[in-house]
Design a protein around this nucleic acid. Structure first.
Length: 581
DNA sequence: GCCGTTTTCGGCCCGACTGTTTTCAGTCG
């Protein structure tokens, strides 16, 4: 069973945790954490690179030693250092680091004094009042540990971005009613439009920080106040979401916004550049000695160190710093660039609106065309169309298009890709369509080779236009299927097929990394709503967010094309255009 | 353990808050 990057990264993470608890050199620990992150996020399969004798030292943070360890992990599944660390210290102890407020030093102290190794033992020790007897711990710390354990048990690790928005927007509205509040914005992973966020980081500007903090903790949804100072505070909302607020003076807004938007790796890279220029960046500004030379706006902060302003979605230390320096940052796609949608459902399958309702809703949102792609029959758990029913829908759409103004419906289908790679409807009916969107709805757990062959075969079908939600993942619910998307992309490009970025907030499939790979491979991405009712079109913006994280520009996205430019790019209609001309 | 516009050694981002202290360590972001 071949390893994945995530598993290799996990070995490094475990080593970092154990080293840290043992009190190792913090920079060595950081080296393992940096390496874990680079490997985990690396676009290509690291085990495959090793197999093909590619140099893994070109991955950021990998030097001679860690390259050797990667090869060792690829060969054996683990590495000798981790085995040795586990022999010296119970491996389960690292789970204690997940409890908020417990870091390596305290975990070590509790282990040495009380032999606490697990969450359960920690709870028992706290309930029996033993924690406060350990040097450096007291009543309050013991009580906090019990509280945080409670939170730990209930907390789902991360929230979908759309879920976080439901907390963020009313909270911002509350903050803005505070006396003396000039600005209040969400920073952090929310602003970078990560598909999930662990907490909300809010930045406000005001002269009197304390007053803003007091106003903040009085917000009705606040269930628990974790910290409250003069310039920052942390609370937990009723939804379980943690919110961190920072208040700075308006002169520092730009610097603080850069700082709290992150990512951490992006900030560290910026500070290193500043160091080289004998400047210092912190959340209050850019400083030469005591003089603040920038900080009111983000642009001023980037400019002070010779960089173009970087869109938040790119701030992941994935090459954006170099691009900002060379003035080669991409001009990222925006929602308004989408002029159509190529994947939507109606009541004919599992949608909740009629053809006409969907057409009007699409037009209302500025779309010039909408592909109607109901499910084919046989899809698990969904009502679908057989050939006869689809034939009637085709006639219905033709009739409707004669009366519609300002929007055109394209005749399409979301057809099942069967386990052997055939499509779930006869060729004769597929040939009558403008667009064929193929999707895997069963057999998500096929082995990698079979899953890949299955999809490659489907792409070969002459009517196939777009591969929908290519990995099938549902965030927090279903893992992506195991498939070699590089091969899929290369074949798609050769055949004139396209890959979808399904914009539903719990799908966002393709991921940002795969979007970037698609761009590199020259495959167009279709950002589709997969709408099941008229409100579903509003999800397109999440797809655009994800596409921006994947460095996509207007030219990289299929449905930025007007209808005339689009038709020849859809194989189904292209082949018919050829026949009729 | 990595890395180089201080390049093979000596650095490695920086500040706020809390609790347990009695001037600071630990944790977090």
């Amino acid at each position: 069973m071949p390893l994945h990057n995530a598993e290799m990264a996990s070995v490094f993470e475990q080593i970092a945790d154990l080293l840290e608890i043992q009190g190792a050199n913090p920079f060595r620990v950081r080296a393992y954490r940096n390496a874990a992150r680079s490997v985990g996020e690396f676009g290509k399969s690291v085990p495959a690179m090793i197999e093909q004798n590619e140099d893994v030292k070109r991955i950021a943070g990998i030097g001679d030693d860690l390259a050797a360890k990667l090869r060792e992990i690829a060969a054996t599944g683990t590495c000798e250092l981790l085995t040795r660390l586990r022999a010296e210290m119970p491996a389960a102890i690292t789970e204690l680091l997940q409890v908020q407020g417990l870091g390596p030093k305290r975990v070590r102290a509790l282990y040495d004094a009380l032999h606490v190794q697990t969450i359960e033992q920690l709870r028992e020790a706290a309930e029996q009042g033993l924690i406060r007897t350990v040097p450096g711990f007291g009543e309050k710390t013991q009580a906090h540990i019990l509280e945080r354990l409670e939170a730990h048990a209930h907390k789902s690790r991360r929230f979908a971005l759309a879920f976080a928005e439901r907390d963020a927007l009313p909270l911002l509205a509350h903050l803005r009613t505070g006396k003396g509040v000039e600005q209040a914005v969400v920073a952090g992973s929310f602003r970078r439009r990560c598909e999930t966020v662990g907490d909300l980081d809010i930045l406000a500007t005001a002269r009197d920080g304390r007053a803003v903090i007091e106003h903040f903790v009085r917000y009705g949804e606040v269930r628990q106040v974790l910290a409250r100072g003069d310039t920052r505070s942390s609370v937990v909302l009723a939804s379980g979401m943690q919110v961190d607020l920072r208040v700075v003076e308006p002169e520092s807004f730009g610097a603080a916004l850069v700082y709290f938007t992150g990512s951490k790796a992006h900030n560290i890279a910026m500070r290193r550049i500043a160091q080289g220029l004998r400047l210092k960046i912190n959340e209050y500004g850019v400083f030469r000695g005591e003089d603040r030379i920038a900080g009111r706006t983000e642009e001023s902060v980037y400019a002070a160190i010779g960089l173009d302003w970087v869109p938040p979605e790119l701030r992941e230390r994935h090459g954006e710093i170099e691009a900002a320096h060379a003035h080669t940052l991409p001009c990222l796609i925006e929602r308004a660039d989408l002029v159509g949608d190529l994947h939507a459902h109606t009541r004919a399958s599992d949608g909740r609106a009629s053809l006409l309702e969907m057409a009007l809703a699409a037009r209302e949102r500025g779309l010039q065309y909408l592909a109607v792609t109901d499910h084919s029959s046989g899809a698990d758990g969904t009502r679908g169309l057989d050939a006869a029913h689809l034939g009637r829908q085709i006639d219905e759409i033709d009739a409707l298009n004669r009366t519609l103004h300002g929007v055109v419906l394209l005749k399409g289908i979301e057809v099942d890709i069967l386990e052997d790679g055939r499509l779930g409807l006869p060729d004769a009916i597929l040939e009558r369509l403008d667009i064929v969107v193929g999707a895997v709805h069963t057999g998500f757990d096929l082995p990698r080779a079979r899953q890949t062959e299955r999809v490659l075969r489907a792409l070969e079908h002459p009517s196939m236009s777009i591969l929908a939600h290519p990995t099938g993942r549902l965030i927090g619910e279903r893992e992506p299927c195991d498939i070699d998307l590089v091969r899929v992309m290369r074949r798609a490009r050769a055949l004139g097929c396209h890959l979808e970025l399904d914009a539903q907030p719990n799908r966002l499939d393709l991921t940002d990394t795969y979007c970037r790979m698609a761009k590199a491979e020259g495959v167009l991405v279709a950002i589709d709503s997969d709408a099941h009712d008229s409100a579903g079109f509003d999800d397109l913006r999440y797809g655009v967010d994800q596409a921006r994280r994947g460095w996509l520009e207007t030219k990289d996205v299929l449905n930025t094309r007007g209808l005339d430019a689009l038709r020849p790019l859809l194989r189904a209609s292209a082949s018919r255009l050829e026949r009729t001309s």
